[in-house]
Simulated assay, not measured.
Amino acid sequence: MTTASLDTAIGFTIPHRHARGRVVRLGPALDTILSKHAYPPVVATLLAEALTLSALLGSTLKHDGSRLTLQAQAEGGAVDLLVVDYVDGVLRGYVRHDADRIAQMPVDPSLFALFGKGYLAITFDLPAIGERYQGIVPLEGASLAEAAESYFAQSEQLPSIIRLSAGRGADGRHVAGGMLIQHLPEGEEGRDRIHTRLDHPEWDHVRALAETVKPDELTDADLPLENLLWRLFNEEEVRTLPALALSQSCRCDLEHFRSVLARFPADERAEMADENGEIHVDCEFCSTRYSISLESLAA
Rank of each mutant, 00 (worst) to 15 (best):
M1P: 01
M1H: 06
T3F: 04
T3V: 08
A4L: 10
S5K: 13
S5E: 03
D7A: 11
I10Q: 07
I10Y: 07
I14T: 09
A19D: 10
R25G: 04
L26C: 05
G27C: 07
P28W: 15
P28K: 15
L30A: 07
T32W: 10
P40V: 03
P41V: 04
A44H: 12
L46M: 04
E49K: 15
E49D: 02
L53F: 06
L56C: 06
L56D: 02
G58C: 06
S59A: 09
T60N: 07
L61F: 09
K62I: 06
H63K: 06
S66R: 00
L68I: 04
L68F: 07
L70S: 06
E75I: 00
E75C: 01
G77C: 02
G77Q: 05
V84F: 07
V95A: 10
R96A: 08
R96M: 11
R101Y: 01
R101P: 00
I102C: 12
I102F: 13
Q104G: 08
P106V: 09
P109W: 14
S110F: 01
L111R: 10
G116H: 01
L120D: 13
F124P: 03
A128V: 05
E131N: 12
I136M: 08
P138Q: 06
L139Y: 11
L139P: 14
G141K: 10
G141L: 13
L144A: 02
A145E: 13
A148L: 14
E149N: 02
E149W: 00
Q154Y: 08
Q157C: 02
Q157A: 11
L158T: 13
P159S: 11
P159E: 15
S165Y: 00
G167P: 02
H174K: 04
A176D: 08
G177M: 11
L180C: 11
L180Q: 14
L180H: 13
Q182W: 09
Q182I: 01
H183E: 15
L184H: 11
P185D: 10
G187V: 00
G187Y: 11
H195R: 10
R197G: 01
R197N: 13
D199K: 03
H200M: 08
P201M: 09
P201T: 06
V206S: 01
A210E: 08
E211A: 12
K214Y: 04
P215A: 11
E217I: 03
D222T: 12
L223G: 04
L223D: 05
R231H: 13
R231N: 14
F233I: 03
F233R: 14
F233L: 09
N234T: 12
R239W: 10
R239G: 01
R239M: 05
T240R: 14
A243N: 05
C252L: 07
E255K: 14
L261N: 05
A262C: 08
D267H: 15
D267M: 15
D267G: 10
E271D: 14
E271G: 11
I279Y: 05
F285H: 14
S287V: 02
